[in-house]
Write a protein that binds this DNA or RNA. Structure first.
Lengths: 246, 246
DNA sequence: CTATGTTAGTTGCACAGTAGCACTAATGTT
DNA sequence: AACATTAGTGCTACTGTGCAACTAACATAG
């Protein structure tokens, strides 16, 4: 029970203890091996938490330079991948006593989708290693630092969930793409096949994409190229895909 | 460009400036007037930001007593309403230079649904006022403190959106309820009528609710009482309601 | 005791979107 | 010219919803 007494001591000078505040980014792309996530290796310095372990890219909020949380996330993304116009959305925040050995900490987590071609991995300032990890295999073994495994799993389930009714997979492709390529991105993320005919009518009737001049040439029938109708905002479908019951 | 030089100075002692960290809660309920949100009045003290203004209930994270962000949110909810088992989900976080005149700040926002009957509003420790505001009318005029209008709008659109495909409105009702009462909650939140027949088949086929012993008696045909099949996790429907045309 | 009003709950039909699958179309290769 | 391969379309069956009419069960007014 708090007393109704004035708390001026605490409130007037704003010097009571504050949590450590970080921003982390879960960056996804699709490679040959399927859905991948970007991880960075923590410095080997034994004074740091989880030396040599793998973690999500991120770090402390720099209150002198970062305008807000999202620009902080964009900065970190750019530092690691060179990409500066990704699909970026906030995932959530994790905070508590135990998640960082250095004390009470809170992290604001963003999740990003980038086309594989755009990423040019860049070793960080501390010469850490940066690498893609296939989401289904190595990640579980990787023993992620902090609570980053939990965060990553939340990001994966958010992505898997949203794929069912949004255009998010389009952000895993370059600007121009064919409908087959788009369908492939959906299938990789959902880890199941989609009926071609239903996919096409659904996508085309939702105004997600606009056909552009040009065809994808190849060893067989050329395919129409498309681009996102409005790259700045994802499309939400009215329904979900149904499970094919084999 | 950062130099690859060691930043041990900064990183080893953890005394660089940190953002102010708060937790705010958007608490919804349904009253006669429709969807309402709980606001608290800020102290009249001119040394405080937005003296006398209305704001979302919340406050600084107390790193000596709060185990984590969610328990901090639960504590604040309990303090204002007396409710301790609400539907509670994280909405997101807002952080930046300008949102609080006292400096760089970040808030972790939760949103809660509670049955109107359960709430017993309690004046806070600082003798602030606490009140329900109908979401559609007074809120816009209320000139909310900080960026709380933006946060509230995000909460409303999250709620409106999720209502279309989840069982969230059930958490606005007491433990036992009839299907008509449940439908009414949906209609209040969505602000449009739903087809009775479609609603019933949808709800009953989704295993959202379980019939229990007892009927709601009244001046006309008694109605079967139901409870949530699993109160601990919301149900997601496979589809969305369609707009009734006309 | 019956008629009436009101809300609970059901039934049947029309419509819309998808799954499933077969079909046609267009290219390079053999 | 036949074939393999991928692009793209057309048709049917099924499912869930919108819509509207129907039946069911109570309280109350006369």
């Amino acid at each position: 029970m708090k007393k109704p007494a004035k708390q001026l001591l605490k409130k007037d000078r704003m010097d009571f203890p504050r949590p450590l505040t970080t921003v982390d980014v879960v960056i996804f792309t699709v490679l040959e091996s399927g859905l991948n996530v970007l991880l960075v290796q923590r410095p080997e310095d034994p004074n740091e938490p989880y030396p040599g372990g793998w973690a999500l890219p991120g770090g402390f909020v720099d209150i002198e330079n970062d305008q807000d949380l999202e620009s902080c996330a964009r900065r970190k993304l750019k530092e690691k991948t060179g990409v500066d116009t990704p699909y970026l959305e906030q995932l959530g925040s994790w905070g508590g006593t135990t998640r960082d050995p250095r004390g009470w900490s809170a992290t604001h987590v963003y999740f990003a989708l980038i086309p594989a071609q755009d990423a040019v991995l860049q070793k960080g300032a501390n010469a850490q290693d940066v690498a893609w990890f296939p989401v289904n295999q190595s990640v579980a073994k990787a023993k992620l630092a902090f609570d980053h495994l939990e965060i990553l799993q939340a990001a994966i389930s958010r992505l898997r969930n949203k794929v069912e009714y949004t255009s998010l997979p389009a952000y895993l492709l370059p600007e121009k793409f064919t409908l087959s390529e788009l369908q492939h991105m959906y299938e990789v993320v959902m880890e199941r096949p989609i009926e071609k005919s239903a996919f096409r009518t659904r996508v085309l009737s939702s105004n997600l994409v606009t056909p552009i001049q040009g065809m994808r040439e190849g060893p067989n029938r050329p395919a129409q190229l498309y681009r996102l109708t409005d790259p700045n905002r994802p499309v939400f479908f009215p329904r979900t895909f149904k499970q094919k019951q084999k």
